[in-house]
């Protein structure tokens, strides 16, 4: 009986020690990135669990192909042929528009837009917590993914890579409360920041003065400011503009265009966006100012 008693008091000390250890790791996690290698190592060990949890959906997709009827396949074929037609019509003019755009940009003295290389990745895991918007993809540093790489899907900006393992990476979605991206309105060029809210389909534009011209339906795209994301990728559409007479800023809700809940195949942009000039202004403004024009 005595031995048991001794062990019991020992467990209390051990628990205290573990709680202190947890407090230490938490403090390290919040303030530094020291534990990131450990997290990446653990994540690659736990890949089978992610894959198992995702297996019903992965198998569901494969099964759907097997049991699809001839009519379904024909229907899908027809729809895709139609889509290809529409897309190739748009692509016909792309080359000429691009060269024209490059020429005009050369006239303005700014660099030509670089088209970045992309990598197709498949989703293999979803973080389950209702307020954490993160996913795991099946490509990692072995495939050339760098930390902070932007991620898009067929419709718009999806998020960014926050953690790169050897064969998997973790992507933070645009709707996560800790995600924000510099944007501009396509119609007016008004700049803002689209911050995630933690809600599944809602972003909010930050610091939009109530006098700004923002309407429902406006297209929001990345502005390329800040250097994190290349410019010109669609982010979402304005769905609500609420102006309270006592507030200085309008509350602008944006719904993301990317299919955050449905997309299984994602595109990772591999090339880092071009560095901004030292003065921090976007290249179109800083580089296009003719010399000698300054007072």
């Amino acid at each position: 009986m005595k031995a048991l008693f001794v062990r019991r008091s020992g467990a209390g000390y051990l628990l205290t020690g573990l709680l202190l250890l947890s407090a230490t790791t938490l403090a390290l996690e919040v303030n530094t990135r020291l534990l990131e290698p450990l997290r990446v190592r653990l994540a690659s060990l736990l890949i089978p669990i992610f894959v198992l949890a995702e297996a019903p959906y992965l198998a569901g997709g494969g099964l759907g192909d097997v049991v699809a009827t001839r009519e379904m396949l024909l229907e899908r074929n027809a729809a895709q042929a139609e889509e290809i037609l529409a897309l190739s019509r748009m692509a016909q003019q792309y080359e000429s528009l691009k060269s024209e755009n490059d020429r005009l940009r050369a006239l303005l003295g700014s660099r030509a837009r670089v088209t970045s290389r992309v990598l197709v990745a498949e989703l293999i895991g979803v973080t389950p917590h209702p307020e954490t918007r993160q996913i795991i993809i099946d490509k990692g540093s072995e495939h050339g993914i760098l930390p902070d790489a932007p991620v898009i899907d067929a419709h718009g900006l999806f998020g960014r890579v926050i953690e790169v393992g050897a064969y998997t990476s973790r992507v933070l979605l645009v709707t996560d409360a800790s995600h924000a991206v510099p944007v501009q309105l396509n119609r007016t060029g008004v700049r803002s920041i689209a911050a995630g809210t933690g809600e599944p389909f809602l972003l909010e534009l930050e610091n939009v003065p109530i006098t700004t011209d923002v309407r429902e339906g406006d297209l929001v795209e990345t502005s390329g400011l800040g250097g994190g994301f290349p410019s010109g990728f669609p982010v979402g559409r304005v769905v609500s503009v609420r102006i309270e007479s006592t507030a200085a800023f309008a509350i602008v809700g944006v719904t993301p265009l990317a299919q955050l809940d449905r997309a299984r195949h994602l595109l990772i942009l591999l090339d880092a966006p071009p560095e901004l000039p030292a003065n921090g202004l976007p290249e179109t403004q800083s580089a296009s100012a003719p010399e000698g024009n300054t007072p």
């Binding site: 573990l18 790791t25 938490l26 389950p128």
Partner: peptide, 23 residues
């Protein structure tokens, strides 16, 4: 620690909670 990685929580958080429950 494994749960932390799976749920994308800060490392050590679930460890402390599970250790407390186990104790």
């Amino acid at each position: 620690l494994a749960v932390d990685v799976l749920q994308a929580d800060p490392l050590g958080l679930n460890g402390a909670l599970l250790a407390a429950i186990t104790w």
